[in-house]
Write a protein that binds this DNA or RNA. Structure first.
Lengths: 144, 144
DNA sequence: CACGATTGAGTTGTGCACAATTGAATTGTG
DNA sequence: CACAATTCAATTGTGCACAACTCAATCGTG
């Protein structure tokens, strides 16, 4: 019989679908902020701490300069960040928030709440999901 | 203090990272098959049942024609599928496997095993993760 | 100090994701 | 039957993801 792997049984597809559904839920909220989902992630990192080099942003998010360089250029065009060559190490580019970028933080408070509301999971389930995903991601990355 | 949402606490980021890590684990195996991850998903659906219209593929995978049309064109160029206008309804395009496309199924057996090996989770944890992701995705999609 | 190796950011090219639009085929309603 | 509304696939345009590459700055070793 069907010895072919089946879509619905694949955890990878469950991850892929859940991830897409989550960004779809965020989309309307992020639209109001004028951000895409990956841009929001970059802003999250910068709201925690700045300046951050492109390298550091990439390490936090698992993205390389091929993705970040144009993304940061767009955030700069939006007036949310500035990029400056580091003085100590001229290979590095430090990314800092502008006032507008910092102010966006308060408006972004509503973003994670939206997912929690839509998730339909208990706090326990959310926490367990979070923990399991963390274990999974760590194991997968180690296996590479 | 930090009233800004923090990256590490966000379930959405955990999903995003886990999904990226999973496709990264698949990448070398899929490279041997000459497929990308989304192309593999389309083949999974076709291995289960064919022919399938573009519309049906999109419904299974949550993708629209803007994504599928060029993807299917590439699968056709690889000689794995063929596309034919449906006779009953000429708006539809039916996608069928070629012999080469059908044969790829057996070589694809190794793909899901690779994730299971790398996951570092027990069967129980995998099943619970799968179930929770399913609940989450359904709830998120309903909320849109 | 010299110089090969490494690091960091950027660019190019390919492919996916999704919104918006187009155009043809079909359906539903008067 | 006519024709407006809907359905379906394809195209266009924007942005992300990642491999491969370039180039400059820095580091490590002799």
């Amino acid at each position: 019989m069907s010895d072919a792997p089946r879509l619905r049984h694949q955890v990878c597809f469950a991850l892929y679908s859940a991830s897409k559904a989550a960004t779809a839920v965020y989309r309307p909220v992020l639209d109001e902020l004028g951000l895409t989902y990956p841009q929001y992630l970059v802003m999250l990192v910068l709201w925690e701490q700045e300046p951050r080099s492109v390298r550091e942003l990439g390490a936090e998010l698992g993205l390389d300069s091929g993705t970040l360089s144009p993304l940061l250029k767009r955030l700069e065009a939006l007036g949310l960040v500035e990029r400056h060559r580091s003085v100590e190490d001229e290979r590095r580019v430090d990314v800092v928030l502008t006032d507008a970028g910092r102010e966006l933080s308060s408006r972004a408070q509503a973003v994670p709440k939206r997912l929690a509301d839509a998730a339909g999971l208990s706090t326990d389930e959310i926490e367990q999901l979070h923990a399991t995903l963390g274990k999974l991601t760590a194991a997968l990355q180690k296996s590479l």
